[in-house]
Design a protein around this nucleic acid. Structure first.
Lengths: 150, 150
DNA sequence: CAGTATCCCTTTTGATACTG
DNA sequence: CAGTATCAAAAGGGATACTG
């Protein structure tokens, strides 16, 4: 549960010949760590689904479909910590907790939306590429066997 | 090494009350699986760094900084399989292999570029949010202790 | 309902050694 | 150089039980 301690510090090295490349270049620690969090399976989905309206925990649990209670809780906590999602607890008898995107979260949502849309638009192309690749590999392996038999 | 077998099939359920939500909604298997691949730490970085020019394996290894040889290889293979990156082997004596984005990869690069830029632009905001959150939690824990002592 | 805490298994990843 | 193979360590994640 404790965070703040990052395992791989191998990233953080001084900038050397940087500034030469286009833009990402100074992949310093902060950006990398934030990207790691955002480029997370569940984070991405939660932000993608939390579009403009609040959702209750159970609603998210059902919507994200496949996420365990534990993972959803962990993910939401991280997003809350990063200021991307706000959490509102209503002190009613069957507990009720609402989640919604913050301003920051909404700006990220736009970007992630593009990513999801890209994926939807190109899933055919990717599937096709995979088939082609798999076939090529299978073919190559077959030929390898031929060679070994001789 | 064998792929094609996905662990969690819990995702893939029929569409029920879908179509009601904004856009992600039909988070069917394909899109989810592709997103999982793209929203990967190393994939993201490789695509981000592979901007418009070819790079050799060793160059990528140095640039991505922190990636192990194994992970870079695995990542590049996946990207190649997905048709996002092309791999060119030169049959020279110290082996030389060039990687570059395909058309498909370049279109994805644009989207990922937005994501990286967003991250760069908002890293301050996120850091601030984290500090605020951590302080709030620490404060709450302190108060919890107070209660328990009585 | 919305969690938290634990246990435990699986997947991921890094280190190391070896090869064309 | 650009991998592949193997193994051990670590992180991720599920199942279950319990709580305010």
């Amino acid at each position: 549960m404790e965070d703040g301690t990052y395992k791989a510090l191998g990233y953080c090295k001084g900038t050397d010949d940087d500034e030469a490349r286009q833009w990402d270049v100074r992949a310093d620690c902060d950006v990398r760590h934030i990207l790691d969090r955002i480029a997370d399976k569940w984070s991405l989905l939660v932000i993608a689904l939390l579009d403009r309206r609040t959702m209750r925990f159970s609603e998210l649990r059902r919507t994200v479909d496949g996420v365990s209670q534990r993972m959803l809780t962990v993910t939401l906590r991280q997003l809350e910590r990063d200021g991307l999602v706000s959490r509102t607890v209503y002190p009613v008898v069957p507990p009720r907790v609402d989640y919604e995107l913050t301003e920051l979260g909404m700006s990220l949502h736009e970007v992630i939306k593009s990513l999801v849309i890209w994926t939807e638009e190109h899933q055919q192309a990717i599937s096709a590429a995979r088939s082609t690749y798999d076939q090529r590999i299978a073919e190559e392996e077959r030929q390898q066997l031929q060679v070994m038999v001789r």
